[in-house]
Simulated assay, not measured.
Amino acid sequence: MRQSSRMLSVIMTLGLLLVGQSFQVNPIHLGRSSNLHPSPQSNSRIRKHSQLNVLPTLDFSSAFSMIDAFYKTQPYEAAFVTCGVKASAADLLAQSRESKGDELSESDKIEVERNFAFILYGGLYQGCAQYYIFNIIFPFLFGNENDVASVAVKVAFDMLVVSPLLCLPIAYLTKSAIYGESWLDGLNKYKYDLTEKNLLLKYWSIWIPTQTLTFSVIPEHLRIAFIALVSFFWLIILSTIASADIESEEADAAKMKA
């Protein structure tokens, strides 16, 4: 809650600075006034203008242009950084949820090696590999058109082939490796979630509309960044569902023992 308040304060401050700069008084225009002896009100406005000029200039357009150029000219580096940071943040959130109630400090609760593994998984597969899949292989197979038929084919191929046969299995195998389980444990967990927890239906409910936007209106060089943004919230949803399932199983086990 405190972090949200701080973020809101920062956003409001930036907004006020932008509004203030948009209404700055131009001294050149004041100098052209027919009044040779400015009034006290004019002098007050000039002093305020000088004070506003002391504030740092917020050139968001230049910053966005630099970011846009980075994604265009260095797509694999941008994909790795974006998805690596996203995976790290998602894992830190998951670790903080898992360690609730522990008496250890926050720094002691964080598993650095696990977080580093998520960074590598996010950067290498979700970033670089998916950039190659969606921006190199897909255009080669289906073209670059974004009409309704072309988008539908790309989304269908992603949902029916890439996701169930590549994306989701890699995620489960990576998770099993990070948690010290065998690859067979990972595949069995994936099979169980497919057949018992309607994993694909939950997946499609989020990613069919997302990928429809990805292949229709999102610029090619920003696709991975857009997917990473949605993926972060998807991981939160999955984590919540998994936590609810675990609590339900523990409650059922307690009832059986009682």
Rank of each mutant, 00 (worst) to 15 (best):
H49D: 13
Y76V: 06
M66T: 13
A79H: 03
K86M: 11
A89G: 07
T82A: 04
A63C: 12
S62Q: 10
C83D: 08
G84D: 03
D68R: 02
S62R: 11
A79M: 03
V54T: 13
M66K: 14
P75L: 00
T57S: 11
I67T: 08
E77I: 14
I67R: 01
F70S: 01
Y71H: 11
A63D: 12
F80C: 04
D91G: 05
L52C: 05
A89E: 05
A90M: 09
I67Q: 07
F60E: 02
Q95P: 04
V81E: 10
S62C: 07
D91K: 04
H49T: 15
L52H: 05
S65P: 07
F64A: 13
F60G: 06
N53T: 14
N53C: 15
Q95M: 07
S65R: 10
L52A: 08
S88C: 08
A87T: 00
L52I: 10
C83Y: 07
A69W: 10
V81H: 03
S61V: 10
L52D: 03
M66H: 14
F60R: 03
S50C: 15
T57F: 13
Q74K: 11
A79R: 01
P56T: 07
A87D: 08
A69N: 14
A69Y: 12
Y76F: 15
T82I: 05
K86Y: 05
T73N: 11
L92H: 00
V81R: 05
A89H: 01
L52G: 03
D59M: 06
K86W: 00
D59A: 11
V54A: 10
Y76E: 05
S65E: 14
T82P: 01
F60P: 00
L52Y: 01
G84L: 02
L93C: 01
V85S: 12
H49R: 13
L55T: 08
D59P: 06
A90V: 08
S61W: 09
S88N: 00
A69F: 09
L52Q: 06
T57C: 11
F80W: 07
S61N: 13
S65V: 08
S96K: 03
L58V: 09
P56S: 10
Q51T: 06
G84S: 02
N53G: 11
T57Q: 09
Q95A: 04
K72V: 09
Q74W: 12
L58K: 05
V54S: 09
S62M: 08
K72Q: 15
L52T: 08
A87H: 12
L52W: 06
F80D: 03
I67M: 13
E77G: 10
H49Q: 14
A87L: 02
L93H: 01
L92G: 00
Q74N: 13
L52N: 02
D59E: 13
S50T: 13
S50Y: 15
A90W: 02
T57G: 04
K86P: 01
P75T: 04
Q74M: 11
A94M: 03
L58I: 12
F64T: 12
